[in-house]
Amino acid sequence: MATNDGGLSLSQQRQRAAFWFLAPMLAALFFVAAWPLLRTIWFSLTNTLLSDLYGGEFIGFDNYLSIRVLESGRVIYRGTLVDPAWWNAVWNTVRFAFVSVFFETVLGLIVALVLNAEFKGRGLVRAAILIPWAIPTIVSAKMWAWMLNDQFGIINDILLNLGLIDQKIAWTASVDTAMYAVLMVDIWKTTPFMALLILAGLQMVPRDIYEAAKLDGVNPIKVFFKITLPLIRPALAVAIIFRMLDALRIFDLVYVLTPNSAATKTMSVISRENMIDFDKFAYGAAQSTLLFAIIAIFVSLYIWLGKVDLSGEGQK
């Protein structure tokens, strides 16, 4: 070993080792992620049908946008980019992502602050709040579908008993409430995770800062905004972006809870619908590709505007 590498400097040697350490991971990611994604992008440029996966022909960007001029001179636009159903899904997804991440962050902060305080039974409470997150999504979607049921659901029963509503609400059916239902379940399910990430950030804030502030008699609310928040900002930024990535891709919850409601149909759901249910495989692939592009743009913007240092390169 040593003689073979004799001609190399230490750092060259380390770089070579680094390459071999990285190779298996990169190979794994290439096969299970990059290759399938490239296939999907390729499919989106063809007219492939699901019933005939290998019979597609290259048709350029027609799945995204095609412009045809009829003999009468009328111009016809077709493709995802002019499909109102697609833009409805984009709007639903973006709205869902912003609202859910906003509430999850605020509630997550509150929960994290509570858990960061010293009190009896903290361990149990911490375990309790992790329950929603540990339950499989498919299961929690079914559980909530059951609780939100208009006739036998316990939610309506509670609200009726409390006098907050005067008649049973069809949560998942009505166009007005379907989105609230999905949001409610998602917030319930992912706030714990958010709280956990924020809690980790909070625990790195040195205790003596609080002690000092307390001695000086600074108002706790002021302490939070002037000291705590700036200190946990990096942790918060990373937590938000991870959640945002998840929220923009949301699929299973919507698919189980409100499968066909136009009010909640997200980009992932509509893309699956086209690929599989409607046999417009290439069209759905184009929508998947757009979804990926939208997420990528979104994340880049966030990192750029928020000056979030994700790679940590700047630290050293």
Partner: peptide, 12 residues
């Protein structure tokens, strides 16, 4: 029919 019928499948 209840308003919720708009969310009913067979089981509901």
């Amino acid at each position: 029919s209840p308003d919720g019928v708009l969310a009913y499948q067979e089981e509901e």
